[in-house]
């Protein structure tokens, strides 16, 4: 109760200072917020491309129906596979006519259907990587009635290289932004603590327990972190609206990201405050 009352009183006693602390925290977290927005949209774009990763198993023309059923079952049973669809020669031709209109005349005029029947193997979300597609393709190629199994090896490898670079860049930049934010938050809270050094000194002098001294500052740090987090998301949302309206279509981050950001801001504030007060207590 004392800790909460003192934390609120600190806001009231020095509204400009605490307001500045929260603004500094907010601006620091705003950079992290923008980064999250960019990362999320990049992730969405890559996921959309990833969904197109599939294995197409081309079958010989003389394959029997029982053999097709066997392969379909075998492939469906693989843990990497979400579903397997059989595409007959006729369906393949119809699809080619629709999807490749520039070759429409060729397909229309042809009396013989040149396209093979096939199995389209769709992979589970976690298995759309080079290793998984290779495994599925290799499993299919083991059957004598399979002509070929294709998955665009080069394309898949490039996509995943891009994903790895994206993830590594996001990780490194995310850590860098978080560190900068931590430094700014730490500095802002150190200023706030420094402004109340007399009180801390008196508390130590008369024999207040360290945990008792820390509590209002931790709470104050958490409150500054939460206020900064709200400000950061507000600014990020305004930026999102601006980009969406005037530049290009982007998606807003999921609600759980916002909640996690606010929680992280609150925890960050409390943690930075704990470090600052710990250092300050050692000096008195």
């Amino acid at each position: 109760m004392y800790a909460f009352r003192e934390a609120v009183a600190a806001f009231k006693r020095a509204p400009v200072l605490t307001g500045l602390s929260s603004t500094m925290v907010g601006l620091a977290l705003f950079v992290v917020g923008l980064f999250s927005l960019a990362t999320y949209n990049l992730q969405l774009a890559l996921s959309a491309i990833e969904e197109r990763v599939e294995v197409v198993v081309y079958l010989r023309d003389d394959v029997r129906q029982s053999e097709i059923d066997l392969l379909l079952t075998e492939l469906s049973n693989l843990e990497e596979v979400r579903q397997v669809m059989y595409i007959s020669k006729r369906e393949a031709l119809e699809r080619a006519r629709t999807e490749l209109p520039e070759f429409g005349e060729l397909f229309m005029s042809s009396e013989v259907n040149p396209l093979p029947q096939s199995l389209e193997v769709e992979l589970r979300p976690g298995s759309r990587n080079p290793e998984a597609v290779e495994k599925v393709a290799f499993a299919a190629e083991g059957y004598p009635f399979v002509e070929d199994a294709q998955y665009g090896e080069e394309w898949v490898n490039r996509l995943f290289a891009l994903r790895r670079i994206g993830a590594a860049s996001a990780g490194v930049l995310g850590i860098a932004f978080a560190l900068v934010a931590a430094l700014i938050i730490g500095t802002a809270l150190r200023i706030a603590i420094f402004a109340r050094r007399d009180e801390i000194y008196i508390m130590r002098l008369v024999g207040a327990k360290n945990s008792f001294i820390r509590r209002p500052f931790l709470l104050e740090g958490a409150m500054a972190g939460l206020a900064g987090g709200l400000l950061a998301w507000g600014l990020t949302y305004a930026t999102y609206r601006g980009v969406y309206a005037y530049l290009f279509e982007v998606a807003w981050v999921p609600g759980r990201w916002v909640a996690a950001g606010l929680l992280a801001g609150t925890a960050f504030g409390a943690f930075a405050s704990a470090l600052a007060i710990r250092r300050h207590l050692r000096e008195i």
């Binding site: 004392y2 007399d198 009180e199 000194y201 008196i202 508390m203 002098l205 008369v206 024999g207 207040a208 327990k209 008792f212 001294i213």
Partner: peptide
Amino acid sequence: YVFQDFRLLPGRTAYENVAFALEVTG
């Protein structure tokens, strides 16, 4: 402990200075 320069909390009354010490020591 008392000091030459008193080290009271400015902006607070005499009562508040003493009450503060009582409060923070539980």
